[in-house]
């Protein structure tokens, strides 16, 4: 085990410091700092539950070493909005029944945001491809596809299509 060093991570716009050894993943670091909204499903990059955005791109935090992302802009699902002021994706997921157990949701929403950021008017296929690294065992994805389309339309200023 390498000796730990003090690192500073910028999480949801706030700098936070922790002691981390070289092998500490960003997932572990975030959760140790109390950002437990970032979920652990496999620690192998297979499920996407741990997805966060780093400089605007969704990545699996379990495959990212904490040391490597010092100074980068890390956003978790809680950085997008809260219960009172939800991000359009959070609102669409919640209102359209795209959340069941909700364990995949934080990662799924971050991956969805990446899809919309890349293409504000995504096709269903864009969404399928963009979410293909995020497993969900509860929903069959049907309502997730609908929620992403709905949020994209809100974000384009067209209002929701519900």
């Amino acid at each position: 085990m390498s000796s730990p060093k003090k690192i500073t991570l910028r999480i949801n716009g706030v700098n936070e410091t922790l002691e981390a050894p070289a092998h500490r993943t960003l997932l572990e670091a975030l959760r140790d700092l109390g950002h437990v909204e970032v979920k652990c499903g496999c620690e192998k990059g297979d499920c996407g539950a741990c997805a966060v955005s780093i400089d605007g791109v969704a990545v699996d935090s379990c495959l990212t070493l904490a040391w490597m992302v010092e100074g980068r802009e890390i956003t978790t699902v809680s950085g997008l909005g809260d219960i009172e002021n939800p991000h359009p994706l959070q609102k669409s997921f919640s209102d359209l029944g795209a959340i069941q157990c909700g364990y995949c949701t934080p990662g799924m929403i971050m991956a969805s945001k990446s899809v919309i950021d890349r293409n504000p008017n995504p096709t269903d296929d864009d969404i399928r491809v963009g979410l293909s690294g995020n497993l969900c065992r509860c929903t069959g994805y049907t309502k997730i596809f609908e929620a992403v389309q709905d949020a994209a339309s809100v974000m384009r200023g067209e209002g929701d299509k519900q």
């Binding site: 437990v36 909204e37 699902v77 809680s78 219960i83 959070q90 919640s94 959340i99 364990y103 949701t105």
Partner: peptide
């Protein structure tokens, strides 16, 4: 109806 548990889960506020 929007499920009572959904907004908290969407916001990452629900503790598992």
């Amino acid at each position: 109806l929007t499920r009572t548990d959904a907004p908290g889960k969407a916001a990452g506020r629900t503790p598992y």
